[in-house]
Design a protein around this nucleic acid. Sequence first.
DNA 1: CTTATAATAATAAATTTTCGCAACCTCGAA
DNA 2: TTCGAGGTTGCGAAAATTTATTATTATAAG
Lengths: 133, 133
Amino acid sequence: MKNVDGVKYRMTKQKRVILEVLKNTKSHPTADWVYDKVRKKIPNISLGTVYRNLNILKNQGEILELSYGKGFSRFDGNASRHYHFTCEHCGRILDIETPEFMEMEHEVARQMGVKVARHRLEFYGSCPDCMTD
Amino acid sequence: MKNVDGVKYRMTKQKRVILEVLKNTKSHPTADWVYDKVRKKIPNISLGTVYRNLNILKNQGEILELSYGKGFSRFDGNASRHYHFTCEHCGRILDIETPEFMEMEHEVARQMGVKVARHRLEFYGSCPDCMTD
DNA sequence: CTTATAATAATAAATTTTCGCAACCTCGAA
DNA sequence: TTCGAGGTTGCGAAAATTTATTATTATAAG
């Protein structure tokens, strides 16, 4: 696999474990959470390595980076395009399997005179566990 | 006007100018851009004051904070709910006046068994000025 | 097995945003 | 108009997340 500069990527123990951790959780963890988790298997891994590989994996399309604006990013091992639901009470982030609403892109393109390449849609509210309030 | 702790907000010269700057631009500036702009009128204002007031104004519902995950926030003097289009070439952010797609919330609520309070929708692509590439 | 070089660990540094505090200013009450 | 409680400011330090640097190590091609 090569990146945009024609440089070969290598598969390392660190990168493999990072990807493994991310693929094996349904949560949408922060870089720090991944770091803690990976350290269980590679105790001397450095945080910089986690960040570097998360970026590489994102550029390779293996994972998604989600920005929720609290100053840090979250990562999603599910690289397929899908929406998210964030519970405003417990903070949990759930994947939504609803198919993409593509008509919106056409409508915006027509109305604004722009070319729409993609969109991002986030829902917020109460999850089933937090509904009783 | 009182905040959640029952504390009265005061109108200061600094807060007024900050709000003014934000209401008078169609761009979606960063805190630093607002800081530079406000300094033209209040040269000795501090960056901390800008951040403090941007947060207060956001909590008062006067402005919106937009997180695009590049490590910093953008602010929108247009506090009405609307979508945004980001040009991936020139970085410009445009307001979209399309009415909200509320049906999506119902669909997600039904399908996930959650209560949806709001959603955020962002479009990305090429703006009219950048279409020819 | 050798070798070129991509990746790592450790640490420093960059960036954005928040905090603590003494001095100051706002606004309602007298 | 004056007064005063307490919200606000400017400034510097501090957080918190992420990126860059560098000498060393480890991957993968031949």
